[in-house]
Design a protein around this nucleic acid. Structure first.
Lengths: 239, 239
DNA sequence: GCATAAAGCGAGCGAGCGATCGCTTTTTTA
DNA sequence: TAAAAAAGCGATCGCTCGCTCGCTTTATGC
């Protein structure tokens, strides 16, 4: 599976995402006609991600957003009741879309090794297709209220658990070396996140998602196949 | 080397860091006596990291800082000329201290394998000892001015280059498998950063730095020793 | 083509921000 | 212990923020 193939089959457009925002916030959005609502939500969604990723959501002002979208202050507030709700709106909808596509990307893979590869590629390809959103979600999670922040953490743990369970099944089937599958999953997750957190670095080096995916796959396999790997010195001094 | 050993020999105290801030900003700090200046800089440094890591530097107000330190608005402005200078002050001094300690931690290790282990442990132990600062530096880098932001990126690339050069030497000496040493270094760096970015996760699981270091070491070795590792399927569909 | 509903507007509000400065309190010096 | 120096203070300033609301403009239905 390459990124090009993934893009073709996933076909996730901003329009779909904004229709989803509209559906889940129907009561607080004043616009009556779906066409108008979706058009403006797209403007707002894009501009919010662009501005927030450039200067941070806190530093972005609603006047910035007005300038970037071409909508007046008043018109903007027909789509959210407060700046905080705007943040919550973008994050919760995005997270829901990501989760759905992640699960869809995994259901075809058969056997632990194939599943591990599918999980890695799906995660990377998704974060490539929705890079501004992934970066936004990572950096702005801590500005959320307590119960929303907890949901963000749960989302992080859920994707990690997905990896851990694959590795555990692989170990049980004798395809991977036994070891700490939770820790292995955590390290793989860290590698996956680096792709969208350090975009500027990989862009400058002209590393494509496909090449990065290949590399992470090999690293993950090396990690899972050789977990018992004897290593010189005194580790496991742990708490 | 364990974290306990590292802490003993590095002995980096807040006092030392604040003395360094004082020295490099002598002209803009109004306090005359070193003892007073260092005492208050410690209060300011600690409170800034605590507040900014909780709610973000932008969202933290100078009045918050006044409440947390017990100093009045006026007294605070005897130590920095603007909120932005406070940010720059903390970040640039911290980065200088980190760079010095990183280099010191590496100079004893002999041979690529030992150097790789030393680099991993030193980076992890440093980020453990100065966790609030590392998190702060990572999250607030993008709120800096352009030339300071560039310096932050250079700092990121410098530590990565350090790893890449070790791996390259190891491959030349035949101790590690040949491969893309820059990419291997990038992935190792991602694993190192996860330690201070996801503190809450590892704390809840009672994973100590020492145990984490052991795990990253094994992952790094698996990655470097088996880089040519044949892997199923169609990768290297690159750029 | 006119009435009515929908969408869009932007000056203006109170709140809270970063920053200042004339004054008081504390410490040092002789 | 009195004078001088240093440190500390907080009301106040100008400004910008998030947000509102009475009004205008545009689209729709008959």
């Amino acid at each position: 599976m390459t990124f090009a193939q993934f893009s073709r089959q996933a076909s996730l457009s901003r329009g779909d995402i904004c229709r989803e925002i509209l559906a889940s916030h129907r009561e607080s959005i004043k616009a009556k006609k779906e066409a108008t609502a979706v058009k403006n939500l797209e403007l707002i969604f894009d501009a919010t991600l662009a501005l927030a990723n450039q200067k941070g959501f806190q530093a972005m002002t609603v006047r910035d957003l007005s300038r970037a979208t071409g909508l007046s202050m008043g018109a903007l507030y027909d789509y959210f009741t407060s700046k905080e709700e705007l943040l919550e709106m973008v994050l919760s909808t995005g997270r829901r879309v990501v989760m759905r596509l992640l699960e869809r990307g995994l259901q075809e893979a058969q056997g632990p090794l194939e599943q591990l590869r599918a999980a890695i590629r799906t995660h990377l390809f998704l974060s490539e297709a929705m890079q501004p959103f992934f970066f936004f979600a990572y950096m702005e999670a801590r500005h959320l209220g307590e119960e929303q922040k907890e949901r963000a953490k749960q989302s992080e743990l859920a994707t990690e658990r997905l990896l851990a369970e694959i590795i555990q099944r692989g170990a049980k089937a004798g395809l991977m070396a036994p070891g700490d599958h939770q820790m292995a999953a955590a390290l793989i997750k860290a590698m996956l996140q680096d792709w969208y957190l350090k975009r500027w670095k990989y862009a400058k080096r002209r590393v494509s998602v496909d090449r990065y995916a290949g590399f992470v796959e090999r690293a993950a396999l090396a990690l899972c196949l050789g977990q018992g790997l004897p290593s010189p010195g005194e580790e496991m001094t742990g708490s």
